[in-house]
Amino acid sequence: MTELQPLDNSHAGVSYAIDETKHEVKTERCGVLSVFTQGSTKNITDNTPVFLTVHDMGSNHTEFHSFIEHPSMARIKARSLFIHVDVPGQGLDSTDLPSDFTFPSMQQIAEDIVSVLDYFQVKYVVTFGEGAGANILARFAMAFPDRCLGNILLHCTSTVAGVMEYFNDKVMNWKLQTIGMHATAEHYLVFHKFGMEIERADNKDKVIKEYIDKLQSRINPKNLRLYVEAFLSRTDISGLLKEHMKVDTLLVTGAKASHLHTVHTMHSHLDPRFATLLKVDDVGDVLHEAPDSLAHNLLLFCQGLGLFSTLPMSRQSSFS
């Protein structure tokens, strides 16, 4: 366990420092996972809200920082523990994974994550994932329903890669493998994260530039390629959802998200008793473009799970 110095971060012109602790958790197939905690890991009770996060391709746990530090999350953050898992080799400034390391599948990552809960002696979590990370956490919730109170899944897909996605991912994969981070790979990852109509979006230039700068300078392209390959080779879990997803699940997407239709497909396969769909208008990246709306609906969802019962609701629209 390593106490980290506060990290300097900024979003939308707001600077803040991150107080987090790094842990190394040994797993069966993922090797030693880098796990970061925000909040106290002491005296965790069954009533302590614990969020387990897994990030998308082209990023790592730091992608959640600006949302958690947003003013709309202050009351939730003060009462919660966030456990962030970095997928192998995806951390900031990561060195190349060993040549003899077999990168795990999405299912294997999901099954190994239970070791993280055991490490912290946490009984139950609310999952909070984005993109590929959301797919991993959906698998985790089905494999370990007794350890999961609910799911908050951003831009999640339950299907295999479609023809165009497969083609685009293969092109990106080739660029990452042969010449490192390349404009083609960058453009695809930007589209994957920020969605449609990027050129028409207001006030996105700064956020997209920061994202590309981080890709170019701090994300290992060889390791990223392996995560992309694992996501590209994912199995279809759509047919398993109705029978095996027995915890409340909030699917979140932006109306301009790149994989909007796949989120709707996943929603149609879930048991309607446990599924809620939140579609935020006029955004592609809900995490960064609509933090107020996401925080409000996160609180509403968690209160439905019996958490944060003493926190008053703010005046905002709820689930669509």
Rank of each mutant, 00 (worst) to 15 (best):
D100M: 02
M172W: 09
S115R: 08
I198M: 08
L137A: 03
F167D: 15
Y124M: 12
T95I: 14
D96W: 01
R200C: 02
S105G: 03
L97P: 06
L81R: 10
D213C: 04
I83Q: 02
N220F: 06
A132S: 02
P88Q: 06
G131L: 00
V207E: 14
T178R: 00
N220Y: 13
S115I: 01
P88R: 07
W174D: 11
D100W: 08
A161I: 00
Y166Q: 12
F120C: 07
G195L: 08
Y124N: 15
A134N: 00
H155E: 15
S115Q: 09
L137D: 04
L137E: 10
E111D: 08
N220I: 01
I109W: 11
Q90A: 07
T157N: 13
C156G: 13
E210D: 11
Y119F: 10
G180Y: 05
M142E: 15
F128V: 07
L97I: 02
L97W: 05
H182P: 09
I113G: 08
K214C: 10
K193Y: 06
A143M: 13
V122F: 14
K175V: 02
F82L: 08
H187L: 06
T127A: 00
L189K: 10
K214T: 07
T102F: 13
V116L: 08
N220W: 02
L176V: 00
H84D: 08
L215C: 01
K214Y: 08
V160F: 15
P104I: 09
A134D: 11
V126C: 13
V114K: 14
D118I: 09
E186P: 02
A134G: 09
A141G: 00
Q121E: 13
L176D: 12
H84V: 00
K209M: 04
M142S: 12
N168F: 04
A138P: 01
P145E: 15
F140W: 06
I219N: 02
Y188K: 04
S158A: 05
G162T: 10
K193R: 05
D202M: 03
L153R: 14
R218P: 13
D118V: 07
K214E: 05
I208S: 02
K170R: 13
S94Y: 07
P221D: 12
L81D: 07
V207T: 10
L189S: 00
G180S: 06
V163M: 14
F101G: 08
M106R: 04
I198V: 05
I109A: 11
L189A: 03
G195K: 07
Q121L: 02
D93S: 01
G91T: 05
Q90T: 04
P104S: 10
P88K: 01
F128R: 05
N220D: 12
E197G: 07
I212E: 13
H155N: 15
F167A: 14
N173L: 09
I219T: 09
I113F: 11
L176Y: 10
A138W: 03
L117Q: 00
G129Q: 07
S105N: 09
K209A: 00
K123M: 06
M196R: 15
M196W: 14
G162C: 05
N173F: 10
I109T: 09
P104W: 11
A132M: 04
K170S: 15
K170L: 12
S217L: 04
I152M: 13
G131F: 06
D100V: 01
A161E: 15
K170T: 13
F103S: 13
M181K: 05
